[in-house]
Design a protein around this nucleic acid. Structure first.
Lengths: 149, 149
DNA sequence: GTACATTAAATGTAACTACATCCTTTTCAA
DNA sequence: TTGAAAAGGATGTAGTTACATTTAATGTAC
């Protein structure tokens, strides 16, 4: 079912304005599936995102500023997300050696273990529900990059 | 700049998993621009979305359930968004004639006027910042529809 | 008609986001 | 060296979302 039927809007002024709506709608759809996927593991989507960035840096630490810089959703509060992850024992905070304003954030063993479980979940979800080929995905990536350019 | 450079993630397992991240990131980018666009008019993005649905139905009313059904972001609370719009005089609520549980929501003259102002803003924003042709937009729409299929 | 399930919407609440402000440390110009 | 500006992060708060519960009206089986 196309976006027009989905939200019962018959006409769009241009294909582009339809694409803008479609992007928002598809993102919302995707977000719902992620929420359902992460919930059994007690993680929200921003928490998952931060954990993945930390793993990307591992074993090097990340400062909070680096996390903000790389977060997908710039609007959420990195400092407080790290609070939550720390409470759960998934990350560690240490004062940075050479700049005492900065904080080094590390992913813990528990964090890495949780992520590797989630990797499996994500992978099997992708396999099951994936509708695009690699070539189609490549085209989509190029178009999305172009929108923001 | 492609998504990989943008969030400094060098490698993705598949083009599809890259597209998933790209979709989230691009949506966030788009959301920021909408927030900036609507702010001078005192509207949030869900409020704008609800107003547009109401205009689509106008002069027929919409029930709250219809709004929920068509909202782009299913997670937000339609009833409370209508509260805000009502406070601002942009919509009216009336008890529905033949089902007294239901509420008919109408867009007001003020609401229509505000939207037509915003239309102009949106249009000039689209003209300025638009990077995709109609054909490219069409391809994007098809791919997004396919992801959700 | 009466009881029970269902539906439409509103509301309570805990958590989260958005944004401003604060605190501490660092930088840098005079 | 010292005082102002800037940077990194934490925190306060108002508003919003997520989700469960409540209230009221309708539908339905008996």
């Amino acid at each position: 079912m196309g976006i027009a039927e989905e939200i019962k809007q018959k006409k769009f002024k241009t294909e582009y304005s339809k694409a803008v709506v479609n992007l928002i709608y598809t993102n919302s759809w995707l977000h719902q599936t992620h929420v359902k996927l992460f919930k059994p593991f007690g993680l929200t989507t921003p928490q998952f995102n931060i954990l993945r960035i930390l793993r990307g840096q591992h074993p090097e630490p990340s400062t909070v500023n680096l996390l903000i810089d790389r977060m997908l959703d710039k609007s959420s509060n990195a400092s407080r997300i790290v609070d939550k992850l720390e409470e759960k024992g998934l990350v560690l905070r240490k004062q940075c050696g050479h700049d005492r304003r900065a904080v080094d954030v590390f992913i813990s063993k528990e964090g890495l273990d949780l992520l590797s479980q989630l990797d499996k979940e994500m992978e099997s979800w992708e396999k099951q529900s994936r509708k695009l080929s690699e070539e189609e995905s490549k085209v989509l990536n190029d178009l999305l990059d172009k929108i923001r350019s």
